[in-house]
Amino acid sequence: MKFGVVVFPGSNCDRDMYDALAYDLGQDVTMLWHKDKDLSRFTTEDCIILPGGFSYGDYLRCGAIARFSPMMQSVIEFAGKGGKVFGVCNGFQILCESHLLPGAVLRNKNQQFICKNVYLTDHTNKVYKIPIAHGEGRYYADEKKLDELEKNGQVIYRYCDEFGTINDEGNPNGAMRNIAGICNATRNVFGMMPHPERACSDVLGNTDGREIIRTLLMQEQLVH
């Protein structure tokens, strides 16, 4: 499979994502400019990534302007055909603003930009240590939508403590039901606030992110 990483004005984790995929995971990666529209070299087996950063200066709302960029029109179409799309941090915000994922991402409960390692757990109860770096990461959807997400198994990562207990202490930003990452109903669009690409290299002392990228994007059978 091939990967494409979209570069918006203000993206600042695009190179980290490229390096993690190309050098730590040995994948075929291309950078995609936001003003281009051409995704013809990608098939629905491939994956388009929306990286972290501050696209369009976070003006209006995080991700609100990026949604209208030419490349995003192609990405929305690609997702509609069943292609894999993965958004990290600002990429997650863009996916919510684009209605590719439900809900919204709000300002952190404590009003601060938080940059630190946190713990996440998935449906297997495995615990991952992954860094976060965001000021607007508090996932929100109404109760009905949250129930629906849980029922469909669309909540893919939750914040937890280092032992894997999902509690308030492990929730850095006040996200509803400790939600750190979700997918869409058809399980081809994924978004998460934490940065797995920053935890893929041995020299960084943490490679938990490799497993997240492999599990989410590189398995035939998508996670449930």
Binding site: L60, R61, A64, F68, C96, E97, G103, A104, L106, Y140, A141
Partner: peptide, 8 residues
Amino acid sequence: KLLANPVM
């Protein structure tokens, strides 16, 4: 369409 996000 743009200025407000009805979710929030």
